[in-house]
């Protein structure tokens, strides 16, 4: 196995009772990388996160974190990890400093060294003026910053974040990413995060796309986009199936219907737009082309629209709550 990998996952499956959440997932994350798991809720990324954070035990397959085997050596792995959960793990009744002290004590950081680390992190995340405020009074973005500071307090080698930008406004989200890039650069920490926002995943070094418990694609965002031949063309039409068949036949290409729209991928999308509109007058309601995005990659790999999957998953989870 690669010595320089921070996380190496081999053939890992996981089930909650009869429901299979992860299906034979393998990947490795080299040290110092920012890696994003992207996919709709229910795709398996949160389960993977729980496994990596040692919250749930491994069922099958193997996971190495740095030089430790997750199945045997949970104890030495824990101090290596800094974790930011999706649900805030701050104690709202405690102040910023008290939350950090508490965390330090849990990780065996005490005394002058703890005080020093806290001052350092408060300065770094620009939280100095808020140090004695209770975290319940802080905004979502500030709280996320405290979480981040907390997760770094014991100088972990790997930072794991579950949907870190949920409930953050675009400003705070962009700030979060600046911090992540800074953390990687200054501390050489390996960062693995999950997100259901494809545009966010674009900022990672490499992206793993998860769907229905499987890792369906894994590469740099650019390489993933390059797997889509050229530009992505989307056509809205009254009769998408008929139009897709007609386009496929006439231009000898693969036009397909995805969730009611005709889609095809071609080089030089702008020329194709003109040709298609001329070739099928009246049959096309609207037509767009765009440089392929990770969404197009998702569509190509799964045959589903990413947005629908997310909405469906949200609806499912609401149903489950009731």
């Amino acid at each position: 196995m690669n010595v320089a990998s921070a996380i190496a996952v081999e053939d890992v499956s996981f089930s909650y009772g009869p429901r299979r959440a992860l299906d034979s997932v393998s990947f490795s994350i080299p040290r110092g990388e920012i890696f994003a798991f992207v996919g709709p809720n229910g795709g398996g990324k949160t389960t993977l996160f729980r496994l990596l954070t040692t919250l749930v035990p491994l069922q099958s397959g193997s996971v190495r974190i740095e030089s430790f085997d997750l199945a045997r050596d949970v104890r030495p792995i824990r101090p290596l990890l800094g974790v930011v959960f999706q649900a805030p793990s701050l104690d709202k009744k405690l102040t910023v400093v008290e939350n950090l002290q508490h965390h330090g004590h849990l990780y065996g950081v005490t005394g002058p060294r703890l005080a020093e680390r806290i001052d350092e992190l408060l300065a770094r995340f620009n939280l100095g003026e808020r140090r004695d405020e209770r975290t319940e009074k802080l905004s979502g973005g500030l709280r996320r910053r405290v979480e981040l500071a907390k997760s770094l307090l014991h100088q972990p080698r790997i930072l794991l974040l579950d949907e870190p930008s949920t409930a953050l406004d675009p400003m705070a989200r962009s700030e979060l990413w600046q911090h992540l890039e800074q953390i990687r650069q200054d501390d050489g920490v390996t960062i693995a995060l999950t997100t259901h926002l494809l545009e966010e995943a674009e900022r990672a070094d490499r992206v793993g796309i998860m769907h229905e418990g499987r890792l369906v694609a894994l590469d740099t965002p650019d390489a993933l986009r390059d797997t889509i031949g050229g530009d992505a063309i989307t056509i809205r039409a009254a009769e998408p199936a008929g139009l897709a068949a007609a386009i496929s036949e006439r231009f000898a290409c693969d036009a397909h219907v995805v969730d009611g729209d005709v889609r095809l991928e071609r080089e030089d999308g702008h020329r194709w737009v003109a040709q298609l509109v001329e070739a099928f007058p009246g049959a096309i309601d609207s037509i767009t082309f765009a440089r392929p995005s990770l969404e197009d990659v998702f569509v190509a790999r799964t045959g589903h629209l990413f947005r629908d999957e997310v909405e469906e998953a949200v609806a499912d989870s609401k149903e489950a709550v009731r």
């Binding site: 110092g32 990780y107 065996g108 950081v109 920490v189």
Partner: peptide, 14 residues
């Protein structure tokens, strides 16, 4: 430097 080849584990305070 965490990028070194074989980093020692962070000290575990027992």
């Amino acid at each position: 430097s965490p990028i070194s080849d074989n980093p020692p584990a962070a000290p575990i305070d027992e």
